[in-house]
């Protein structure tokens, strides 16, 4: 185990972090839309949201990645593995985030929104000033948790040939015959990234003035 190998694994960790950040961010945006759809009073929208969440939460990410990786070329979209990986991770996390957000919105105390109506706020003001901030406070810890889950789940993109941390460790393990060391160091990198995300999450909570609800 030389310093060079640790640096090589470090580049894998950068790839893992990049994949996770992109899929978490895009997944949040899609998650908000899916959450809105499943809370909608329009039945087809509501059902679309429910089925979307159920499917992408119910299928193992590995199977989802294989599906996307093999189906896209058949649709005429010859995308590189990294794009298929990003699509898979994003779809998966968007479903989890939609469900988390839905839980947050549903659990905002109705009295708070009634109070908003009483003082003459309109629907938009109630949503933006009361419902959304409280839902965010309720869901931030779960969203941080989801970021950690995706960081770990991103290890599966190694299966579709993306050179992330796990893939790098696999390659180095077979070329150096040091699997124990390689996977242990890869694990340490994941742990480090997760600790950063965990602390970052609580720091973000403080920054936004959110108390644990």
């Amino acid at each position: 185990m030389t310093w060079e190998l640790v640096v090589l694994l470090g580049w894998g960790a950068v790839m893992t972090a990049a994949l996770s950040i992109v899929s978490i961010t895009v997944g949040l945006a899609i998650g908000v839309l899916i959450c809105a759809a499943s809370l909608s009073r329009v039945a087809p929208l509501k059902w679309f949201g429910r089925v979307y969440v159920s499917f992408f939460r119910g299928v193992p990410l590995l199977v989802l990645l294989l599906l996307i990786y093999h189906v896209l070329p058949q649709l005429g979209l010859d995308v590189p593995g990294v794009v298929a990986a990003l699509i898979g991770l994003t779809l998966c996390t968007s479903a989890y985030q939609a469900e988390t957000l839905r839980g947050g919105f549903v659990n905002v105390a109705p009295g708070l929104m009634e109070a908003g109506r009483m003082v003459g706020l309109n629907a938009r003001q109630i949503l933006l000033r009361i419902r959304a901030p409280i839902a965010l406070r309720l869901t931030l810890p779960a969203l941080v948790n989801e970021a950690i889950m995706i960081l770990k789940a991103s290890s599966l993109v190694s299966v579709v040939g993306v050179g992330d941390l796990t893939r790098t460790a696999q390659n180095l393990a077979s070329s150096t015959f040091l699997p124990l060391e390689m996977f242990a160091v890869a694990g340490a990198y994941y742990l480090l990234l997760n600790i950063v995300v965990g602390y970052g999450g609580s720091g973000l909570g403080r920054l936004l003035g959110l108390r644990p609800a």
């Binding site: 770990k152 290890s155 796990t166 699997p179 242990a184 994941y190 742990l191 997760n194 600790i195």
Partner: peptide, 23 residues
């Protein structure tokens, strides 16, 4: 518990399956 929850299952399995024989 922290280490198991903080690392991917795939890496744990690789460590056990490919690293195990070395110990």
């Amino acid at each position: 518990v922290g280490v198991i929850r903080g690392t991917p299952f795939l890496v744990q399995i690789f460590l056990l399956y490919y690293g195990g024989p070395f110990i």
